[in-house]
């Protein structure tokens, strides 16, 4: 009962997940526990990348780096994101 499949199996679910309007999603701040709509977060856009901070405690929720050809996304500052269907 320990069988697993490889990462290809999440392609469908993740494509489904990311197709939702992110501004409608809510996230829980890993630092202060506030659950809030991502649209309420504070976004700082610099040349190096985009930093999303919790509007309650200023903690970094997410970092996006996009070079055009390559892009990184770090949601390490949220414990979970909720999207509603």
């Amino acid at each position: 009962m320990t069988g697993h499949v490889d990462g290809n199996a999440i392609a469908g679910p993740l494509a489904d997940f990311f197709s939702f309007d992110v501004t409608m999603a809510t996230g829980r701040c890993r630092a202060c526990g506030t659950v809030a709509e991502l649209a309420r977060a504070m976004v700082y856009i610099s040349g190096a990348g985009t930093v999303v901070r919790c509007s309650t405690c200023d903690h970094v929720l997410a970092v996006l780096v996009d070079t055009g050809e390559r892009a990184w996304i770090d949601f390490g500052g949220v414990t979970a994101i909720e999207v509603r269907r």
Partner: peptide, 20 residues
């Protein structure tokens, strides 16, 4: 560090184009 965890190069020598 902060940006280095998110795609940027650990050292960043511009003459070697160590961007990411």
């Amino acid at each position: 560090g902060f940006w280095e965890q998110n795609g940027y190069h650990l050292r960043g020598d511009p003459w070697k184009e160590e961007r990411y």
